[in-house]
């Protein structure tokens, strides 16, 4: 437990000192807030929560994925992980520490998004839970990319386009039924569906997200067995 706490604390401090990462966590809630206040609220024909749900899906797809991949790739490239493991830390403790920060940050971001969107009660809780589940999926996918990448640059080169595809697909699906049908198996589409319409069926999209998490966890385990952390 103390190793997980140590990595959690390290990751948290590192995140606050890493402007590039910090901006990624702040930019989507900030843009959603600005668009909601400047565009949506004065315009009666646009739902107040439209930009929040749109940017929340993009956040779930892009930010957590690229940050997790970058963090792990950087710690491997700089050989920091090697020293942590030599000090007696287990790889799963490292993953729990890094993943824990991503989930905690996502929880905070989800609360900000939820407040901006004006959600209340059960809808607010549902919004936060769905966004955190999406972040778990992104975190696992990012961790896999971080492990298979040779260095931080290679991790960014893989994570960014993948994040863009996953994050922006819900936006494209608003204009194309084909995209919607094709990409409905991805968690970001389901996150978008769940947070856009609270009266819609919860079970099927939630199951798809859980299946995504399970598949990414299996992918991560496979990559870890093949390449290890250090």
């Amino acid at each position: 437990m103390r190793s997980v706490k140590a990595i959690f604390s390290k990751q948290l401090r590192d995140m606050f000192k890493n402007r590039t990462v910090l901006i990624q966590f702040v930019v989507f809630p900030l843009v959603a807030f600005a668009f909601t206040e400047i565009v949506a609220k004065p315009n009666g024909s646009i739902p107040d929560s439209m930009f929040v749900t749109m940017f929340a899906s993009i956040y779930a797809g892009v930010t957590v994925l690229t940050t997790t991949a970058g963090t792990i790739a950087e710690d491997r490239e700089r050989k920091s992980l090697r020293f942590l493991i030599m000090a007696g830390m287990k790889p799963y403790q490292y993953m729990l520490g890094v993943g824990g920060v991503m989930i905690a940050a996502s929880l905070l971001v989800a609360v900000v998004f939820g407040a901006t969107g004006g959600f209340h009660g059960v809808n607010f809780v549902r919004f936060v839970v769905v966004l955190v589940l999406g972040s778990v999926a992104s975190s696992l996918l990012g961790a896999t990319l971080g492990i298979v990448s040779k260095n931080q640059q290679a991790a960014a080169a893989m994570a960014m386009p993948l994040g863009m595809i996953l994050g922006f697909t819900p936006l494209l699906a608003m204009f194309s039924q084909t995209v919607k049908k094709l990409f409905c198996i991805f968690y970001t589409m389901q996150v978008d569906m769940l947070v856009s319409d609270f009266s819609a069926d919860f079970t099927t999209p939630a199951t798809v997200i859980i299946v995504n998490i399970a598949v990414f966890a299996a992918l991560f385990a496979f990559a870890y067995n093949k390449k290890g952390l250090s």
Binding site: K10, R13, N18, R78, K79, S80, R82, F83
Partner: peptide, 11 residues
């Protein structure tokens, strides 16, 4: 102590 220090540069 190895040739690559593995330190966390932003901390």
């Amino acid at each position: 102590m190895l040739d690559e220090d593995g330190l966390f540069v932003r901390l």
